[in-house]
């Protein structure tokens, strides 16, 4: 990540309170293009987290932050419900609309009936996951 505070020709900060990209050479008009960052600030003013992406053309959506931080999904966003036997999953995106270059959230909520389980990471080192084949049963 190349970031800095851009300065004008007289050396004074051009964008003193912003993070800017200095990947582009000094002297180019686009040197110091503002670099987008989302800050999550608590009610007491403390900075909780920052969402920073390396490419200035990309943006983290508010819906993505709300999903990751609070489990919230934008109203009107459709979620799929998948079910098989004792296993059910609700899968969806954090928003129904977005612009090119935006980062949106993805969620998958799983539920199993009592007495059932699925294996998951971390598996013991002696275990490996492989596709199963049971030709006799057409599987």
């Amino acid at each position: 990540m190349n970031s800095c505070v851009a300065t004008g020709t007289d050396g004074t900060p051009k964008l003193s309170n912003r993070i800017v990209s200095c990947k582009l050479a000094p002297g180019l008009q686009t040197h110091g293009v503002p670099h987008p960052v989302n800050y999550l600030v608590a009610a007491d003013g403390m900075l909780v987290r920052k969402y920073f992406v390396p490419n200035y053309q990309h943006r983290v959506t508010a819906s993505s932050v709300a999903l990751r931080e609070f489990g919230a999904i934008v109203e009107g966003t459709a979620a799929l419900t998948l079910r098989s036997g004792a296993f059910a999953a609700e899968i969806g995106l954090s928003a129904a609309k977005a612009f090119a270059g935006q980062q949106i959230g993805f969620f998958a909520k799983f539920r199993l009936d009592r007495g059932w389980h699925v294996c998951g990471a971390p598996l013991p080192t002696a275990y490996t996951t492989r596709p199963s084949r049971c030709p006799r049963y057409g599987l």
Binding site: L93, G105, F106, F107, K109, A121, L123, P124
Partner: peptide
């Protein structure tokens, strides 16, 4: 280690 009851995964696109 197994997953049971309810659990969730989050990611981004």
């Amino acid at each position: 280690p197994v997953h049971c009851d309810s659990f969730q995964g989050l990611g981004s696109l």
